Simulated assay, not measured.
Amino acid sequence: MLHISQAHLERFTLLDETIAAFCLRKRLSAYVSIRRDLYLVYLHYQAGSGAGFLLLGGFGEDIAFLRLDSVSLADIAVGRTAHLTEFSGDGFSIPRPYRVVWQRIWDRREFRVYEDVESPILKRVDFDRAYVIDKDKWQAASSSMAVKDDLLPEKLAITMEVSERDLYFLSSDIDALKKDAQEVRELVPYPFDHKEVMPGLYWIFQFAYLFNEVKGIEKKNVLDRLRGECDEGAFAGKRGGLAVRLVDREWNRSKGRKGGPRPFKVTDLKSWADVPDKYDISFISDGLKVALAVADWWTDRCEEDPNISRVQLALKLYAQNFDANEACHVVRLIAGVQLSKVERNEFEKIRIDMDKKERLKTARSERVQNFV
Rank of each mutant, 00 (worst) to 15 (best):
R359Y: 12
A74R: 11
V330H: 01
R351F: 12
I281L: 08
Q338V: 14
E346K: 03
S143P: 02
P189R: 06
L226W: 04
V331A: 03
L242W: 03
F169D: 05
Y209V: 09
W138E: 08
E343R: 00
S5I: 12
G241V: 01
V101S: 10
P306C: 09
L24N: 01
R225Q: 11
G79I: 01
P261C: 14
H194G: 05
R351V: 11
L56M: 07
Q312F: 11
F127N: 02
E183M: 12
V71I: 14
G79E: 06
R359Q: 12
D107W: 07
V117L: 15
S119G: 05
L201H: 01
K349H: 09
D323Y: 15
Y39F: 14
L28W: 09
R35N: 15
K178G: 14
F53W: 14
V311H: 04
R108V: 05
Q206Y: 05
I34E: 08
Y31R: 00
E183L: 13
A335Q: 01
Y202P: 08
I63Y: 02
E229D: 12
R332S: 05
I350C: 13
S93L: 03
E303N: 10
K349L: 15
R253G: 07
E250W: 07
L40Q: 02
A335S: 10
S29N: 15
A234P: 04
F169G: 09
R27I: 13
M198Y: 03
L317T: 07
K361L: 02
V244F: 10
R351Q: 04
G336V: 10
L177A: 07
L14C: 14
L40S: 05
Q206H: 02
V222L: 13
S309Y: 00
R112I: 12
P263V: 02
F127Y: 11
A236D: 11
C328D: 04
S163Q: 03
E186R: 13
E304P: 08
P95E: 11
V147G: 01
S163G: 08
L187R: 14
L360P: 01
V311M: 02
D69R: 06
L210K: 13
E186N: 07
S143I: 10
V117A: 10
A327L: 12
H44M: 13
R239P: 05
K357S: 04
A20H: 03
L151W: 06
L242T: 06
I4T: 06
T81A: 09
W297C: 01
E17N: 04
T13C: 11
L55A: 11
E164W: 03
L152P: 00
G89E: 13
I204N: 01
K148P: 00
L38Q: 06
L152E: 08
V78K: 13
E183W: 09
F347Q: 06
E303R: 10
E17H: 07
D90M: 14
C302T: 14
I217Q: 00
L167S: 06
S144H: 02
L84C: 14
R344W: 04
D166H: 12
L187H: 10
F235S: 03
L177M: 00
D173P: 05
F211R: 06
D355R: 13
R27D: 08
N370K: 07
P306T: 00
S285E: 02
E115S: 15
A47K: 10
L242V: 05
